[in-house]
């Protein structure tokens, strides 16, 4: 297993009076795509938000490249090279696609070569470059959200349920884009409910339940072990195929 780029140790977090994370332990290996699985309300999204500094840590540590970033402010965490695509995409609807991308390129003007690569991954971005992002379709908005996250080289991408509510053909486009990102050895932590999508992409996997990681290992091992899938996720893919 590669060295950890990000490691969470005994992470606790509260939202209001609710104790959401109960001691999350998670290692995200450098250069791999790690999938975070789990049922609704298991704390997957909160884990990502806590890494990003959007939800306060009440106990435990977040280490990024060996540096303790627990309690750091969100902009500082972003500037260290972590990009976040939240659930619901968080694109700026009143801004054009171009303006969305220009904001995401926080360290300076957009690198034209990288932009060409993003256009190859997501052709609609070129087509709607000067249109308002609010007028894009759901799939195109998701493409913009991911394009924004990769317009500058990042150390780590945190992506929350990119396939939610999208048509199957668009999910396939997204999968191709993720495979391309993987080939570039990007480190990605992907929250996903769609197990087929997750299985096709994931190298490592962690399963959360009730605010803690209950299983961590290689995706290949989980994909083969139907009994374990049944136990962890309550699904049997064999039955569907």
């Amino acid at each position: 297993m590669a060295e950890s780029l990000l490691s969470l140790t005994d992470l606790h977090a509260n939202i209001g009076q609710y104790h959401i994370l109960h001691g999350v332990n998670l290692e995200v290996p450098r250069g791999e795509l790690t999938v975070l699985l789990g049922r609704n309300g298991a704390g997957k999204s909160t884990t990502l938000r806590t890494i990003m500094g959007l939800t306060q840590v009440s106990r435990g540590t977040v280490r990024f490249k060996g540096e303790d970033i627990t309690g750091a402010a969100t902009p500082g965490i972003a500037r260290r090279g972590i990009a976040f695509v939240p659930e619901g995409m968080g694109i700026f609807q009143l801004l054009s696609v171009r303006e969305n991308m220009e904001l995401a390129a926080a360290s300076g003007p957009i690198d034209p070569q990288r932009l060409e690569w993003v256009f190859e991954l997501f052709p609609p971005m070129k087509q709607f470059w000067d249109k308002d992002a609010g007028n894009l379709s759901g799939g195109q908005k998701q493409m913009l959200a991911i394009a924004r996250a990769i317009i500058e080289p990042r150390e780590l991408l945190l992506i929350d349920e990119p396939t939610k509510g999208l048509a199957p053909s668009i999910i396939n486009d997204l999968r191709d884009a993720f495979i391309d990102l993987k080939d570039q050895e990007a480190t990605i932590l992907l929250v996903e409910q769609n197990f087929n999508f997750a299985r096709a992409l994931g190298q490592s996997v962690a399963v959360m339940d009730d605010g803690a990681v209950v299983h961590a290992g290689q995706m290949a091992a989980l994909a083969e072990d139907e009994a374990l899938q049944q136990e962890l996720l309550g699904l049997s893919l064999g039955a569907h195929q």
Binding site: M52, L54, A73, T74, P75, A78, R79, F84, P86, G90, I91, F92, Q93, L94, L95, E99, L103, A104, A106, S107, R148
Partner: peptide, 17 residues
């Protein structure tokens, strides 16, 4: 204009709102 829509997402892009 981005901040009017979502201050949180402006911070996520790395800007100190």
């Amino acid at each position: 204009r981005a901040g009017v829509e979502s201050t949180e997402m402006v911070e996520v892009q790395g800007y100190r709102i």
